[in-house]
Design a protein around this nucleic acid. Structure first.
Length: 351
DNA sequence: TCTGGGGTCCTAGGACCC
DNA sequence: TCTGGGGTCCTAGGACCC
C-alpha cells in the first residue's frame, strides 16, 4: 500500500464553533476576536464566510472590521473552549486505524496513512469529524506535507468540494504559474525579495540556482526556497509529542503605560504567569522581555540564567533585570515575557 | 488597515577560546 | 609589528505560521 499525507483543516473553525453554541448566528456575518468589543485594541481571530465577503479577515483590527461590516455579530474569543473542541477533533483523527497524527494548531493536523485510496480515507475523515463534532473540514492529499498542505486550499468551500489531491504528477499543472507567495513558508517579504531577483512564479523559483539564492537569502533558507518551488518537503508525519522550546505571555494595554513603575509591575506579573505556566514542565534556562513602544516599535532583550529554574521569584527578578537593558522611557503599548527551555543535548543521556 | 497572542526557525555579529 | 582560522556561545532581529 502506498504512503500518503493528508492535511485536515477545519472550515472557519472558531466561527463555526461559536455558531454551534448559538445556532441563530448561522448565515450571519460573525467576527470573533479579543473581548468581542470592536472599539478595543484587538484583532480578528476568525471571521465567518459571510463576514469575509465584506473584507474581514483574520489579523484585521477589530475596529476596521466594524467599519467594513457594521452589521457583524462581534464575539469574544473563548480559547479554553476552542482547545476542548480541538482536542475532540484530534481524538477523532487518532481513532483511525494505523494513522499517525501531527497536530499543527487548534484547527489543523497532518495525518500519515498507508492506503491505496486516500480519497476514501479523506471522505471518511470528513464524515467522522462531522459526526462527532458537527464541524466541517477540508482535506488536502499529498505525497508529502507541503503538497498536502497546499492541496487543502483547493479543497476549501467556495473553491473545491472538500478533498483535493496534489502530487508530483499535477504539481506543475496546478502550481507552476502561481506567485511564490502561494507557497507555505514564503511570506510577503520573501516574495518581494524573490521578485527583486526576477523570480515571480513557482516555476521560476523551481528553476532558480540554489547556490545563488543561498548567497542572497541565507545558506539554509535560499536552497530551501528552491525546494518549495519544486514541491519538495517532508514526507513522514511525526506522531511523537511536540517538545516546546519556549513559553510566553504578552499583553497589549488598552491605554499605553507611561509610568515606568507600572512597566516594572506588569513585567513582574507576566514573569509570574509564565512561571505558573511552566511549573509542571522543564525549568527555564533563558528569559526574554519584549517591549513595544508607542506607536509600534518592538524590541527584545534577553539573558541566560546562571542556572535553569522554575522559581517564580527568580524569574520575576531576572525579567526585571533584563528590563533594565531598556533605557528609553517612551510610552509602552505592549509587554511580554518569554521563558526558553534548555536545548536538549543529543547524546547527553545518562550512562 | 494604527496593527493580538503564542509560537518556531534562521541569520548575523561579536565574544571568547584554542 | 596591524596580524590566521575554526568552533561555539550569546544575543538581537527578522520572517513566517496558526
Amino acid at each position: 500500500m502506498a504512503s500518503w499525507v493528508l492535511h485536515v483543516d477545519l472550515d472557519q473553525f472558531i466561527a463555526a464553533v461559536e455558531i454551534l453554541r448559538r445556532p441563530e448566528l448561522a448565515g450571519l456575518p460573525v467576527v470573533v476576536g479579543g473581548k468581542g468589543d470592536p472599539t478595543q485594541r484587538a484583532v480578528v481571530a476568525t471571521a465567518s464566510y459571510e463576514a469575509r465577503a465584506h473584507g474581514v479577515r483574520s489579523g484585521l483590527p477589530m475596529r476596521t472590521a466594524a467599519k467594513r461590516c457594521p452589521d457583524a455579530v462581534f464575539l469574544p474569543a473563548d480559547n479554553p473552549h476552542y482547545e476542548e473542541v480541538s482536542a475532540e477533533v484530534m481524538a477523532t483523527l487518532r481513532g483511525f486505524d494505523g494513522v499517525v497524527v501531527e497536530v499543527m494548531g487548534w484547527d489543523e493536523a497532518f495525518v500519515g496513512a498507508h492506503t491505496d485510496d486516500p480519497e476514501a480515507l479523506a471522505r471518511a475523515i470528513r464524515a467522522a469529524v462531522l459526526a462527532r463534532t458537527r464541524l466541517s473540514c477540508s482535506v488536502g492529499i499529498g505525497d508529502n506535507m507541503l503538497r498536502a498542505k497546499l492541496a487543502t486550499e483547493f479543497a476549501k468551500p467556495g473553491t473545491g468540494d472538500g478533498v483535493f489531491r496534489l502530487t508530483a504528477e499535477n504539481w506543475d499543472e496546478v502550481m507552476a504559474h502561481r506567485p511564490t507567495r502561494a507557497l507555505w513558508g514564503i511570506g510577503a517579504k520573501t516574495a518581494g525579495k524573490l521578485a527583486d531577483r526576477g523570480i515571480h512564479t513557482v516555476a521560476e523559483l523551481a528553476e532558480a540556482d540554489p547556490a545563488a539564492l543561498a548567497a542572497d537569502l541565507g545558506p539554509a533558507l535560499g536552497p530551501w526556497y528552491v525546494q518549495l518551488g519544486r514541491g519538495i518537503g517532508r514526507a513522514t508525519v511525526e506522531g511523537t509529542p511536540w517538545v516546546p522550546r519556549s513559553r510566553s505571555k504578552e499583553t497589549t494595554f488598552q491605554e499605553n503605560l507611561t509610568a515606568w513603575d507600572d512597566v516594572r509591575t506588569e513585567v513582574a506579573a507576566l514573569a509570574r504567569r509564565v512561571a505558573a505556566d511552566i511549573a509542571g514542565d522543564r525549568p527555564a534556562a533563558r528569559v526574554a522581555v519584549k517591549v513595544r513602544f508607542a506607536p509600534f516599535s518592538t524590541y527584545t532583550r534577553s539573558a541566560t540564567l546562571d542556572a535553569p529554574t522554575h522559581d517564580p521569584d527568580v524569574l520575576a527578578a531576572e525579567a526585571l533585570q533584563v528590563l533594565e537593558k531598556f533605557t528609553s522611557r517612551r510610552p509602552v503599548r505592549l509587554l511580554g515575557v518569554r521563558a526558553e527551555f534548555a536545548k536538549d543535548e543529543p547524546g547527553a543521556t545518562d550512562p
